[in-house]
């Protein structure tokens, strides 16, 4: 059963296509990440799914509702955490949560939500006294207070320091345990890798690759890079055939790319064992999600 189904989604601003034909489905209980540089169309897509924007063309279904016309009963079943923190500075954490809870027909108890996001100590603190990370956690709490089936997280950790990011990740992981469907956008590779069951890379308003974080963009089948060092006395012709071309004679560093790393490693390690050599700095690397992402989005950080 799909919680989200999108086909042929297009959004034009005048002649400019912000979203140029997107198809995607997110299954119930799945954590799905939309990955892409700024301006790629991820936020526009998510805001259309949230009902914040109207689409130009295509069909969109979230929990069986058309977000444009779903109205109150649609919004009772989704939770939205926007990119921008938007909180009244003078109110207390529990006051804001209680007011939002009353809006939903089957909300979670305020204390429970406060605990989920780890703000127990700050229950009675005013928003303006919270740190940036604590404010984001309060936003997350507001996103889940209505016990939603689908949660939209738009760049949930942008601007976080590494430890705050880890905390947010474990929070989102807790939501996954509760069986929530989560659609998140991010431009952090490691975030997508850590959180998402599936990832779609979006660039120029279209999805350029989709799959699990492990195999997206042919990552699982791509060439692996093997690196090790040998002594200066080892010449090219001494090495096993697979490694000969990769030797840099000036410093003994060997770098080779191969689509059959198991076989290559076997040859290399057998050769070393025969000679009683320990291969210094031996590593095997797959292209990182970041390598794949940069290749797919044309290398630019900002697109």
């Amino acid at each position: 059963m799909n919680a989200i189904a999108v086909s042929g989604l297009e959004k034009f601003y005048g002649d400019l296509a912000a979203v140029g034909g997107i198809d995607l489905t997110v299954a119930e209980g799945e954590v799905f990440a939309l990955l892409g540089p700024n301006g790629a169309g991820k936020s526009t897509t998510v805001e259309i799914l949230e009902g914040h924007r109207r689409r130009t063309r295509g069909s969109v279904e979230v929990l069986g509702f058309d977000p444009e016309t779903g109205g109150r009963s649609f919004r009772e079943r989704i939770g939205i955490v926007l990119q921008q923190t938007a909180l009244e500075p003078e109110l207390e954490v529990a006051e804001i949560l209680a007011t939002y809870a009353a809006i939903y027909p089957r909300s979670l108890p305020v204390d429970e939500v406060v605990e989920i996001v780890g703000l127990q100590e700050k229950r009675r603190a005013r928003v303006k006294t919270l740190s940036g990370g604590q404010q984001r956690r309060l936003e997350l709490a507001l996103g889940i207070i209505g016990d939603p089936d689908v949660i939209f997280l738009d760049e949930p950790t942008t601007g976080f320091d590494p430890s705050a990011r880890r905390q947010a990740w474990s929070l989102i992981d807790n939501l996954r345990q509760l069986g929530k469907t989560i659609l998140l956008t991010t431009h952090y590779m490691d975030e997508a890798q850590n959180l998402a069951d599936r990832v779609a890379v979006i660039a120029g308003g279209v999805i350029v690759a989709e799959g699990t974080p492990a195999d997206i963009g042919g990552r699982a089948e791509g060439e692996a890079t093997i690196r090790f060092r040998v002594g200066r006395d080892v010449a090219g012709e001494d090495l096993p055939p697979v490694a000969r071309a990769g030797l840099d004679e000036s410093d003994g560093q060997v770098t080779l790319e191969t689509s059959t790393p198991t076989e290559a490693l076997n040859e290399i390690t057998s050769w070393a064992m025969e000679r009683g050599l320990e291969l210094e700095g031996l590593t095997v690397e797959r292209p990182t999600l970041e390598d794949i992402y940069l290749r797919l989005t044309g290398g630019g950080g900002d697109g």
Partner: peptide, 17 residues
């Protein structure tokens, strides 16, 4: 100010009419 802060937008995303 509530509009600048994004509070109006956030309210619009809840079931509050």
């Amino acid at each position: 100010i509530a509009r600048d802060l994004g509070i109006l937008k956030k309210v619009r995303g809840t079931p509050l009419p």
